[in-house]
Design a protein around this nucleic acid. Structure first.
Length: 408
DNA sequence: TATTCGTGGTG
DNA sequence: TCACCAAGAAT
């Protein structure tokens, strides 16, 4: 049913005043609120009273799945519990905690944002969406989300979920034009319930925004929506998937990296390349040294993996060169033994007969040996992290036991 | 306004 | 397997 060319909504839908709806907005939001009260997931950033934590959660959640964010959010808050702590941190340390989450600009903006808040707002987040919008990395959605959730402002937060829910309810096709977005914004705003009374501790606007997103994430899903479980199905024109625009086609590329290992005294080191600060992609982050494809022609990689970045699939080949005695590749099941083995290293072993080392497509200043035991503290790219873990050089983090039932 | 930013789960 | 796309923002 989807996959058709989008048509603009009718003219009268973009009116400036409150849009005419085929149902009562108060009834809609009441149904939604009741559903949310009984179906809200228990997430770490819910029921907290720290605007900084709400801010952090909203930045992390940008284009990132809830399940992915949960652990990182807790870890980040422990390391940087306040605006001040974050503002005073080194960017590399912030990036290290963000490693693997992607969209690293978010981490840099958040870091700069904390410094901005410390300087301009005395370390306390501004309380209005208008002022929040001035923070680096905070756009319309995030400003509205923080203002409504942390400060109970009556403003609609419109993310991909909300957009999809409203389009389906009204039977509108996907349309990202300015006019269509303004129309959708009007509708979204008209659905946000007001505060009950100045004395009530409840937060109808914040709960409503979260409920709309929750509905989109768990019921009104992009494909195969669960309309039988939907609290607002009776208001819905579509009751199923709506018309969406076609996506860009996926490209693919083959790339190669060097995994060079050496020993220094009792420690083992791996060679990493620091990406240039001017790079638009993952600036200042550490990766495995890149190899030109010509250098590895005819060679068989020690490890192959696939890694996709937005609309490009990378077929990644890893070529290992290591000091004598260091296994080039290990079974992930024996990682602990492998590390024990590496600690008992032969002094002064080094990669002296390397063929690929001189072929690295990077300047020597950007290359540095790093102790494998400290890799978790470094701002590694997701791909580097994945390659280092799969090859047994970097310890795979233990799954957390929090939230699991106790052992009998 | 259209692109560019990462990564991983999912059907 | 593979296309899809997630609590968007900046440029």
């Amino acid at each position: 049913m989807p996959r058709r060319k989008a048509a603009p909504p009718a003219e009268d839908q973009s009116a400036e005043s409150a849009p005419h709806l085929a149902f009562d907005p108060a009834e809609f939001s009441a149904r939604l609120a009741h559903w949310f009260k009984h179906n809200a997931r228990d997430l770490p950033w819910r029921n907290i009273r720290d605007p900084y934590a709400t801010w952090l959660s909203e930045i992390m959640l940008q284009q990132t799945r809830v399940a992915t964010v949960i652990e990182r959010y807790v870890e980040f808050l422990e390391r940087f519990p306040t605006v001040t702590a974050l503002a005073e941190a080194e960017e590399a340390d912030v990036l290290a905690l963000w490693s693997g989450l992607g969209y690293y600009r978010r981490a840099r903006m958040l870091h700069r944002g904390a410094q901005f808040v410390l300087r301009e707002f005395d370390g306390k987040l501004p309380r209005t969406s208008h002022e929040l919008r001035t923070l680096p990395g905070v756009g319309d959605y995030t400003a509205a989300a923080i203002a409504s959730i942390a400060f109970r402002e009556r403003i609609a937060a419109i993310d991909g979920n909300v957009e999809r829910v409203i389009n389906r309810v009204l039977g509108w096709p996907e349309d990202r034009s300015t006019k269509a977005r303004a129309a959708l914004q009007q509708v979204a705003q008209s659905l946000v319930p007001p505060l009950l009374s100045p004395r009530s501790k409840a937060n109808p606007p914040g709960d409503h925004n979260q409920a709309m997103m929750e509905l989109g994430a768990t019921v009104c899903t992009p494909r195969s929506p669960l309309c039988l479980q939907c609290p607002v199905v009776e208001f819905c024109q579509t009751r199923g998937e709506h018309i969406t625009a076609p996506r860009a086609k996926q490209k693919s590329r083959t790339v190669a990296y060097l995994l060079a290992i050496r020993k220094r005294g009792t420690s083992t080191e791996v060679l990493l390349h620091k990406r240039d600060a001017q790079q638009s992609l993952m600036a200042n982050m550490l990766e495995l040294p890149p190899l030109p494809m010509e250098a590895v022609a005819e060679r068989e990689p020690t490890l192959r993996l696939r890694h996709s970045i937005t609309d490009t699939s990378y077929y990644v080949q890893i070529f290992t060169e290591s000091a004598p005695g260091v296994p080039p590749h290990h079974d992930p099941d024996v990682i602990d033994e492998y590390h024990d083995e590496l600690v008992v290293a032969t002094p002064d072993d080094h990669v002296d007969s390397s063929e690929l080392l001189p072929q690295i497509a990077a300047s020597a200043e950007a290359l540095q040996w790093h102790n494998t035991k400290l890799l978790a503290l470094l701002p590694l790219t997701g791909l580097a992290r994945k390659a280092l873990q799969r090859s047994g050089v970097m310890l795979v983090p233990r799954p957390t036991l929090a939230g699991l039932p106790p052992l009998e």
